[in-house]
Nucleic acid binder design. Structure first.
Length: 873
RNA sequence: GCCGCUGUGGCGGAAUUGGUAGACGCGUUGGACUUAAAAUCCAAUUCGAUGACAAAUCGAGUGCCGGUUCGAGCCCGGCCAGCGGUACCA
């Protein structure tokens, strides 16, 4: 083995690491600790795609570098293995999901090992393992005990095709996120978690987190805090309402109490409980028809039809508490039943939606905030002095709000109120492959099991389908369902928990995966506390990350953990797209430009347009666009998402086969910034593969397989030391900042330079290998061994920068005239502070002199060591 | 619409604090080695102009328009485009 052959060295070192438990986490860490975590994968049947190794390589580099820097590192991996695909496969084929899961886990694990990640595999967790989910159930009991888990009959998103209820977050555009099946609303008895109780804390906690701004913004948006007031509107008594159980008043929520004088009508959601009692006889038929219609609309229809406002008058009136005037009460589906009180005061003068509705139904519009003179729109939502508003007149919005809320509270007809968009978490699913609830029902009343009765193990069932009625598959395990509780007959809860449950706390289990007295060992918790760095996809910005924060805060309040947030720093890796593709378009046999195509499609979405894939050599760049050489039309140049149907999927196994794991790792890190979306380039992989070949030949003579004769035990020269230490500094800083692409660039610069050296001092070579090792661990181990070391490089201390070597004798200084560089001068480092000498030197530079002579020197600016600028007129 | 992010060569991207724009890699071109090819190595490569060649010099240039500054890819104001999220949340 003389030339660089990744297939041989990679399997060799993977076997070595396994045999020596090289990456075992110290049980009793000394010195600083570092917990670096990947979002654990759902082990799907299709195996790893190239997106997985991106984040995993980044965390692995951090883990390896931190170990070398003397940290005790916790770097584990596991499986988020409950979930729909295995269950649907079971429904189709009858294969037990446990079997599918076991096989998929084995496949994933071997693929991860193939990439050389330094996980401590002795800490592997699997959410479907009864010894894991017993603690998921235990945490549920904690939630129950603290009043945070309850049952409710709620309208839920029922998906007939999947046979289950979905959380709001799992419904996208009215269809299921998984599979794209239609979803309808239907009331069912469900388990709920009171996440709303933690809304304020979940919001506040974000401020202290080192997370992407976009993710924090999404969570803030999701929690949706609004500060305002509740206002009670009395119902005007009339003889002709049709019900006797009359509501005496209706409460609305508003963020604009300052506009109360402009509230000219009121709107209830069709689901509002007071609707029945308000309808007058002449309005009843119309109103009931409308309510019926609204109830039957799916979410999708409600969204599609939302362009036009619809509604119906109830016949009843409410009294505006500040004007004492009666205002009509309407029903409309633009008011949501589940937000606020399900009723609003409509202020068409200052609210776009109310304005549209008022226009459509000819309701009075009153402006109570003075818009600027040039304002032309309908509703004015900006600031201005209050008008037509009695005691508020002249006040601006914020002042008027306070004054009105004070008045409402004095009158006892309203109160300050904070409202959240966040709703309680629908926590049950009618599925088989999930955690059973530790709950039994005695005479219809839920009873929590004792922690000693855990785990409640998933029973075997004949088939995995839910019943027609929507009963969960577990209901079919009749022997299991029938049980006793404290001597009484009882039936078990047959719902299971959603997939999010297991991932809400897995990062805690890694700290003490075999602990039997609780979800985690308090001693281990005291050591690791929280995740220092968490890397995973942005698609989990809200769901997983919000739910995990919620559970963590509950566990904090319960005294189980000592920190209030689970993930200190969070980074999302960007998606990897397919290779750049050029597409030309043809319409009726004629080549058309991309722009033309868009125009045609806009007028006629059905138009038949042929997309023709072009090779790179058939296109050229002209101006801003790429042009098809043969026809001269602009083509589309785009990297597309990888997909089977497009045929642009890159399989990591193939890349490893051809170039090795080190090249795949290195390439994925070299592509660009971690967080960024980036197109794949197979040529790029070849580039880093060539780099590793150069590294190999820098130290190994590929004729003989021996160490290069240039390698010797000599003292490094000044220049060699400088380059080495520059590289150490750059690589160390860049790893810390997760700038892997520029760290690799620094390694390349080193090798390019060192290739030209007659001798390569051994100490320099060794330290370079140390720097390379987190990125390309296999080749680094092999070179380290060949350099004569017996112990793995993984435990070799990280090279330290010696600043003394970074100092140069001479620096090149740019000399500008009027901000343009006109020449450079060499200045001895010692002389840099001597402004007069530097200026003299600069003025003598021939090209600079030319410009100085052409005008009058009016100003000299010198930033020592940086730049010199002459201003000439 | 609203929120967030991003616009730099033929391509992926550097420029960490306002101080020589284009590091590093890909591609391309030329050369060396070779009977030849592969592999490898060396050199050039933002665009344009001047230059026989070269050295060199000049002009333009970081999505667009304007501003601040001795100096702007970076700061400020106004746009445009793309990506992601969200959408009657009162």
């Amino acid at each position: 083995m003389n030339t660089y052959d990744p297939s041989k060295i990679e399997s060799k070192w993977q076997a070595y690491w396994d045999a020596h438990e090289t990456f075992k986490t110290p049980e009793k860490p000394e010195g600083p600790t570092y917990y670096v975590l990947d979002m654990f994968p759902y082990p799907s049947g299709s195996g790893l795609h190239v997106g997985h190794p991106e984040g995993y390589t980044a965390t692995d580099i951090i883990a390896r570098a931190k170990r070398a820097q003397g940290y005790s590192v916790l770097h584990p991996m596991g499986w988020d293995a409950f979930g729909l695909p295995a269950e649907q496969y079971a429904i189709k084929t009858g294969t037990h999901p446990e079997k599918t899961t076991r096989e998929n886990v084995a496949k994933f694990k071997s693929q991860l090992k193939m990439l050389g990640f330094s996980y401590d595999w002795t800490r592997e967790v699997n959410t479907t393992d009864p010894e894991y989910y017993r603690w998921t159930q235990w945490i549920f009991l904690k939630l129950y005990e603290r009043g945070l888990a309850y049952q409710a009959e709620v309208p839920v998103n029922w998906c007939p095709a999947l046979g289950t209820v979905l959380a709001n977050e799992e419904v996208v555009d009215g269809v299921s996120e998984v599979g794209g099946h239609p979803v309808i609303r239907r009331p069912m008895r469900q388990w709920m978690l009171r996440i709303t109780e933690y809304a304020e804390q979940l919001l506040d906690g974000l401020d202290e987190l080192d997370w992407p701004e976009s993710t924090k913004a999404m969570q803030r948006n999701w929690i949706g805090k609004s500060v305002g007031a509740e206002i009670d509107f009395a119902i005007q008594s009339t003889q002709n309402t049709n019900s006797s159980d009359s509501h005496s008043h209706i409460t609305v929520f508003t963020t604009r109490p300052d506009t109360l004088f402009g509230a000219t009508y009121m709107v209830l959601a069709p689901e509002h409980p007071a609707v029945d009692s308000l309808l007058t006889q002449d309005q009843e038929a119309d109103a009931r028809a409308y309510i019926e219609q609204a109830a039957n609309k799916s979410d999708l229809e409600r969204q599609e039809l939302s362009k036009v406002k619809t509604g119906v008058f109830t016949g009843a009136f409410a009294i505006n508490p500040v004007t004492d005037q009666p205002i009509p009460i309407w029903i409309a589906d633009y008011v949501l039943g589940h937000y606020g009180t399900g009723a609003i005061m409509a202020v068409p003068g200052q609210d776009e939606r109310d304005y549209e509705f008022a226009k459509a139904f000819d309701l009075p519009i009153l402006r109570t905030v003075q818009p600027p003179a040039d304002f032309e729109g309908g509703a004015y939502t900006g600031d201005g002095p209050a008008i037509e508003s009695g005691f508020l007149n002249g006040m601006h919005i914020s002042e008027a709000k306070e004054a009105m809320m004070d008045w409402l509270e004095e009158q006892k007809t309203g109160r300050r109120k904070t409202q959240y968009k966040l709703r309680d978490w629908l926590f049950s699913r009618q599925r088989y492959w999930g955690e059973p609830f530790p709950i039994v029902h005695v005479d219809g009343k839920p009873e929590p099991l004792s922690p000693d009765d855990l785990p409640v193990i998933l029973p075997e069932v004949e088939d995995y389908k839910p019943s027609e009625k929507g009963e969960p598959p577990l209901a079919k395990a009749t022997d299991w369902v029938k049980t006793t509780f404290q001597g009484q007959e009882a039936i078990r809860e047959t719902n299971t928990m959603p997939q999010w449950a297991g991932s809400c706390w897995y990062y805690l289990r890694y700290m003490s995966p075999n602990y039997t007295k609780g979800p985690l060992d308090p001693e281990a918790e005291a050591i690791w506390k929280q995740v220092d760095l968490y890397i995973g996809g942005a698609e989990h910005s809200v769901l997983h990350l919000l739910y995990a924060r919620f559970w963590h805060k509950v566990l904090f309040d319960a005294g189980v953990v000592s920190t209030s947030e689970p993930f200190k720093k969070l980074v999302h890796q960007g998606m990897i797209l397919g290779e750049l593709e050029f597409t030309a378009f043809r319409h009726n046999g004629e080549w058309i430009s991309k722009k033309k195509r868009d125009e045609i499609l806009e007028n006629d979405p059905e138009a038949s347009i042929e997309a023709v894939r072009c090779e790179e050599e058939d296109v050229e760049k002209r101006g801003d666009a790429f042009v098809h050489k043969a026809s001269g039309v602009a083509v589309e140049a785009k990297a597309h998402k990888m997909s089977k149907s497009r045929g642009n999927v890159i399989n990591p196994d193939d890349v490893v086969d051809r170039y090795g794991a080190d090249s795949l790792r290195l390439y994925e890190m070299f592509m660009g910034p971690l967080e960024q979306v980036k197109p794949w380039s197979t040529k790029g992989v070849e580039g880093v593969y060539r780099f590793l070949g150069r590294v190999w030949r820098l130290m190994i003579d590929d004729q003989t397989g021996q160490l290069q004769s240039s390698l010797s035990d000599v003292e490094p020269t000044k220049a060699q030391n400088r380059l080495l230490h520059q590289t150490i500094q750059k690589v160390t800083d860049d790893i810390e900042g997760l700038r892997m692409n520029t760290a690799i660039s620094a390694l390349m610069i080193f090798v390019n330079e060192a290739n030209g050296w007659e001798t390569l001092p051994r100490t320099v070579a060794e330290r370079f290998v140390c720097l390379l090792h987190p990125f390309a661990p296999h080749i680094a181990e092999e070179l380290w061994e060949r350099l004569g070391h017996e112990k793995s490089i993984s435990h070799t201390p990280w090279p330290v920068v010696d600043e003394a070597f970074l100092v140069e004798d001479e620096v090149t200084l740019a000399v500008q005239v009027n901000g343009k560089v006109r020449g450079t001068i060499e200045v001895a480092t010692a002389q840099l502070e001597d402004q007069a000498a530097v200026l003299t030197l600069a003025k003598d530079e021939p090209n600079v002199k030319k410009y100085l002579d052409a005008g009058t020197l009016v100003k000299e600016i010198y930033v020592p060591g940086r730049v010199l600028n002459f201003v000439v007129k």
